[in-house]
Design a protein around this nucleic acid. Structure first.
Lengths: 324, 324
DNA sequence: GGTCTTGACGAAATCGATTTCTTGGTCTTC
DNA sequence: GAAGACCAAGAAATCGATTTCGTCAAGACC
């Protein structure tokens, strides 16, 4: 790999001039041509590391997501990537695995790699943005918010929970349970509050076991649904607060020999890779990709120097009731 | 962010000594303690960029995959990540989108960011590893191979295709079609050859349209299945050469009102997020995660200085026939 | 013609670590 | 006790870019 010095020597100019050519500063026509010729001849590519050391920043943005195997987050990642790409930034994807320790590690890496900024779907409330913040690097929280005064892009989760539950009610179900995620995680908390609000207001039947907490994954949803079916007065419908738990719930229903139409299911999120006609499931579709592009746009504005006070953008989910 | 100079000043030693402490070289007990105290007091973290500029290499490995929304590749990524993590390396995930241009861009980034190595699931045959190779950075091809003399980890795709087709034959199907991926991609090519071998050897019924080429995604599988069903002599079973196309095929079957048991389906890969009892589908499970860990192990060995000739590791897929 | 502004561009400093070179001191060894 | 071996540790070079500073020349203006 050729360096700027070799290019300079070949072109008969100083390294400074080569740098100026590559950074679009004023250089005379002829030297410019000489430099470019020399550069192509040596197939010169500026060393990003050296540049970064000098400039104290890079064209890399870190994206921290809690579960890379969840299609919601990969769709979000696509959004971030597409937007970043347009501005010449590259995205480093980091899988925190819902683990605050891993999250911390990656934030440290983002700092010591002098990445230009961070987009973060926090694994927990006690995320520590101190190290990033004191470097002055912008951070955008996505999907979930943080206690720090940073930009955020989220979904109106309460409304999504309400919409999901109301849709089931409107279909005639009157014993509506809820499979929520781990307690303490904001998104699932709000969606579950939406459910409770509707259930309370409409005075549907209820039962101690109608609220199940599960992990955010398929197995959690399956176990929760099995628990619901084992109640003496089982529900006739259920709201799951994320996509993967809905998959688990459907698996449990299938295993119990219950056909989709007999049992109402509403999911906050989208059922991934559905293989049967999904007409019988209410999906409250989250704008995953849009969350990503929005977060990336906000981050890029900050990187470009925007210093207005932190904003929080709230996107709406789109209800897709089955055509009956 | 404190620098090594500030630590040195506070500890009353030279920067060189601080560096030595952090790199485990011989330093007297007392200076070592002084340095560590100063470092913690200033919460010093070595600047990775400066280190990289000097050492000409980093603890970052690039993983280039063609489709981040395909669960096969995310599982593979998990494998890479887990293994890399153990050795203190971080993984930069790059989504090439099956696009040779994007792939090239990311390879350039990997080079100019002086990443320690690259794990690559090539988007096409004409991948250009020149820039990486001339830097002497190790490359491991995963899932698909390249024309370059580099390490590779792959699956015995031919055997997988044979296994899938044979399983359908054994279940009694005699009109077995194949939905293959885009022509020219090695994995799908080999799987399709496996299918053809069985179909020819067992002399099952055949038809011009029994081989469908589709893109690697859900919509491709669906379209291909629709085309199959529209034939005058439609097949009674189908082998799909990847996971997402199987999802599409199942969707098309469901839309046509054909129940799983009436039509044989074998998939090379795993059906993601299945919501019905999958007993009726033959899955030839690919060791996605294992591909990732193996590739990462090989790469890490190369990074550590292994200079033995390139190896190709071939893993076997595991057939999971439905319990009838 | 003389002073002032302007612009191109080279010399050298800089970013923050690692690593080579050097020095001064301690420890062996005959 | 002198010579050689060895070791801790500071001084300075180095990695490859960017950027400040200063110089020199050309053009503007009175």
């Amino acid at each position: 790999m050729a360096t700027i010095y070799e290019v300079a020597a070949l072109a008969g100019v100083s390294p400074a001039t080569v740098s100026r050519v590559f950074n679009g500063l004023t250089v005379s026509e002829e030297k410019q041509r000489a430099v470019r010729d020399a550069a192509t001849k040596l197939s010169f590519v500026p060393n990003k590391t050296a540049r970064r050391l000098r400039k104290q920043s890079s064209e890399l943005i870190a994206l921290l997501i809690p579960d890379i195997e969840n299609p919601f987050f990969t769709a979000l990642a696509r959004g971030v990537e597409d937007r970043a790409q347009e501005s010449g930034f590259s995205v480093v994807l980091c899988n925190t695995d819902e683990d605050p320790a891993k999250e911390k590690r990656y934030l440290g890496i983002a700092a010591s790699e002098q990445m230009a900024g961070v987009i973060l779907a926090p694994a927990s409330d006690e995320v520590d943005l101190g190290s990033i913040a004191e470097l002055g690097r912008p951070v955008v929280a996505v999907d979930r918010t943080t206690p720090y005064p940073v930009d955020a892009v989220k979904v109106d989760n309460r409304a999504a929970g309400i919409a999901a539950t109301t849709a089931l009610f409107d279909q005639g179900y009157r014993r509506i349970a809820c499979i929520a995620g781990p307690a303490g995680i904001e998104t699932t908390e709000d969606r579950f509050l939406g459910w409770r609000q509707v259930v309370t207001a409409r005075r549907t039947a209820t039962h101690d076991g109608y609220l199940q907490h599960a992990n955010f994954r398929v197995d959690g949803g399956r176990a929760a649904m099995e628990a619901l079916l084992a109640l003496d007065a089982p529900p006739d419908a259920v709201v799951t607060t994320n996509n993967l738990m809905a998959v688990g719930a459907l698996q449990a229903l299938a295993a119990a020999g219950i056909r989709p139409a007999e049992f109402g299911l509403a999911v906050v999120g989208e059922l991934p890779f559905l293989t049967f006609a999904p007409a019988s499931v209410v999906e409250v579709r989250l704008p995953a990709r849009h969350l990503g592009t929005t977060a990336a746009s906000m981050l890029l504005e900050r990187i470009a120097g925007d210093t207005t006070p932190p904003r929080t953008v709230v996107l709406r989910a789109e209800v897709k009731t089955p055509e009956l």
